[in-house]
Each structure stands twice: as structure tokens, then as C-alpha cells.
Design a protein around this nucleic acid. Structure first.
Lengths: 201, 201
DNA sequence: CCTTTGTTTAACAAATTTGCTAAATACAAC
DNA sequence: GTTGTATTTAGCAAATTTGTTAAACAAAGG
């Protein structure tokens, strides 16, 4: 029997991810995806059951990667809260630069009726992570390094400060005069800047 | 001649805005829009030239409203920088609650090739607003109330902290256990919280 | 060389969507 | 009531998209 050419399946997935998550064309047709991948459209139906299933596969894969990194980070007892948040910020910004529209896609998907793409995080794990943050945050607030707020508000701040700017790129470039290099530099600067905004000391 | 029934045209516009900007269904078909507005699909072609033109009209209208408020706010010399930012935050959050997907739509639109929907802000006005912010910000930095950063970074922070959370609602509600009332309360709390995060004193 | 199995292609039918048109309707003015 | 104009409706043709099928092709084993 012939060797299974894994390149085609991968190629389709990677092209779909680029179109959805990098370029934000969330409703690209199978025609477009196949064309840009340089493969016959039928192959999307051969390797995946169809458009919806291709969606499901790439989203689930992306979500799993994010979740695993989050889990690993926030459940490790060894490093300090400040350090955890620093790493989270770095990770988030790099992720958002790589796939600016990914979170947006997940949000839209989550809003859709009958979406089966996103399975909720396990109840126990979710609670454990949240409690861990809440506890560490309380200590920071006590020390006066962070204004009084809930863990949810704090995480909302972190996520917003990281995930929005890469999305906002075209808007920002129109508002401020920025070339590609200048934009990249600005986003990288944010990594340390965000920490300075979150923690006052 | 019969009185022009402005209700139909308005109804279509409002329905389109709700579908696009509130529910985030950015590629809803003319059929869907007409159905939800309770009018015949042909009327979209009667009052607007077609789907694309309907887009153009509602987007331009929304952009104009935002721009005018921004302009009025940031070019008024009478109020303090802190107060300006406070009002901007309040305005942005209310706007984002009303139309969570509006900015997202604008961003996607701006990324599209050949988009004529968004005309850049006048060069003179843009520069004037930016300079005004930069100048006020320098003073705040000098007083040690804000960490050292450019005007662009500061505005990026403000916009992110305001605009992202309403988008993130479904995600947040899955992460943290929040009912509708709890969510609303949390977002309202952000108005003052964001100021405390931006200005340390 | 022939068979078997996995992959790729082209072509088709069904469904959806768009943009338009011609006819129907509503309604104010006469 | 008739007329003229604005509005609304139903329906059509073209284009697009989806999902399937049957046939072609490639490669490895016998």
C-alpha cells in the first residue's frame, strides 16, 4: 500500500488556520481554502467530513494548545504570581501575534447556537486555577501593589491588554503613523509595559 | 404622493446593526436580515443598492458617531486629562456594551482589500488629537502618576481595557460563574477600576 | 505485470444567495 | 373615483457553494 501523504492533510489544516486565525476571514469557502492550499477542493471532503468538520479540527487543536500551556503555567506552585503573570503576558502576546483572530473566532463560535466546537474546561480544573489566582492576587492587593479588585477583573485586564492590540493593528496603524517595524517594536515593548501597568511599585 | 415611510428604511438599518454589531453575525445574508426585520427582501435593494451598500451605510453612520464624540472630547481644552480619559472610558464601555462587535467589524473591514467603507480621519485632526494626548500624558508621567510610555501605548491600553471585555463576555461567563446581573455589575465596576489601573496615585 | 489500497481529480445535483424586474398595492391629490 | 407616485411583493435567472460520486492515478506487494 502507498505511504499516506500526511503533507496534504497538514497543508489543508495550516492553510485553514492561516485564513481563519491570521487573516480573520472567518467565513472563507471550501473553494477559497482549497485554492490557497493549492489542492483540489474534494480533498477537504476526503480528509475532513466537510467545512464544519475542518473548523472543528483546527479550533479544537488550537484550544488544546492554549489550555495546556495555561494549565501548566497556573498550576505550577514553584514560581511567583508576578512571574506567572509575566509569562502569561509573554505567551499571550506571542500567541496573539501569531494568530490575531483566534480568540475572536472562539468568541464568535461560543456565541453561536448549537456550537459543539468548544467544550468547557473541566469544572475542577477551572475552579482550581481561579482560586489560585484569587489567592495570589489578594496578597498583592494587601501589599498595595495592585488596586483592590476581583480575580476575574484582574484577568480581564491582563487578557485585554495582551489580546486586543494585535487585532487593533490596522486601526492603530491608521491612527498613529507606524510602519511594520515600528509596530512590531511597539508590541514587544508592551510585554514589560503591561506588567508595569498591572503592578504598581 | 404618499408620505415616505421612513420606518422601513430605519427598521432595516437598525436590524442590520443589531445583527452585525450586537450579535456578531458579520456575514448574515439579505434573506436573514429581511426576515428578522420582518420586511420583504427586495426592500433591501429598494432602499439600499444591495447588501454591500447597506453595510457601507450602517458602518459609516456608526463611525461618524464615534468620531464626533471623540473629537468633541479630546479637543475641548476646558477639562483635565484625567477627566477626559474618564469620560472616554465611560463612553467606550457604554458603546461596547451597546454594540460589542462594532470595533471588531471595523477592524475586519479595514483589513479587507478594496474596502471603501472606512475613510481615514483627516490628517490635521488626527495629528492634533494625538499631540494633545501626548502632551497631557507627558505631564502625568512627569508627576509619576503613569509609567513612562508613548501616547500610542497609553491609548492602546485604554481602548483594550474598555473594548475587549464586552466581546469576551461569553468566554468570561464560561470561565467565571456569572449570571447576567453579575456580568453587568462587573462591567460597570470596570469604569472606575480602569482609571485606577491607568493612573497610580 | 497485475492487484490492491490509498489518494486525487473532474463533474454533477442540490441548495443558497444575489440582484433584478414586473406586477401589485397603498395612498395622497385632484 | 381616478390618477400618479411611492412602496411592497413575488418570482426569476445567474452565480456561488456545498457535498457526493465515479473515475483516474500513484505506489507498493505479490
Amino acid at each position: 500500500m502507498p505511504v499516506i501523504d500526511a503533507r496534504t492533510e497538514e497543508l489543508i489544516k495550516e492553510t485553514a488556520m492561516r485564513i481563519f486565525f491570521v487573516e480573520g476571514r472567518l467565513h472563507a469557502t471550501t473553494q477559497v481554502i482549497a485554492k490557497e492550499a493549492g489542492v483540489n477542493r474534494g480533498l477537504i471532503y476526503y480528509y475532513f467530513k466537510g467545512r464544519d468538520h475542518l473548523f472543528e479540527v483546527v479550533v479544537k487543536e488550537a484550544v488544546m494548545v492554549i489550555r495546556n500551556r495555561l494549565k501548566e503555567l497556573f498550576l505550577s506552585k514553584r514560581i511567583s504570581f508576578r512571574k506567572k503573570i509575566s509569562e502569561f503576558v509573554e505567551m499571550s502576546i506571542d500567541q496573539s501575534l501569531k494568530y490575531p483572530y483566534l480568540e475572536m473566532f472562539l468568541i464568535t463560535e461560543l456565541n453561536r447556537d448549537g456550537s459543539t466546537v468548544l467544550t468547557p474546561t473541566g469544572e475542577d480544573l477551572r475552579k482550581e486555577m481561579l482560586d489560585s489566582i484569587e489567592e495570589d492576587l489578594k496578597e498583592e492587593i494587601r501589599k498595595g501593589r495592585v488596586p483592590k479588585m476581583s480575580g476575574a477583573q484582574f484577568m480581564m485586564n491582563v487578557i485585554s491588554l495582551c489580546a486586543y492590540p494585535p487585532l487593533y493593528k490596522p486601526m492603530l496603524q491608521q491612527m498613529v503613523d507606524l510602519d511594520e517595524a515600528g509596530y512590531g517594536k511597539m508590541i514587544q515593548e508592551r510585554k514589560s509595559l503591561i506588567i508595569k501597568v498591572l503592578f504598581k511599585d
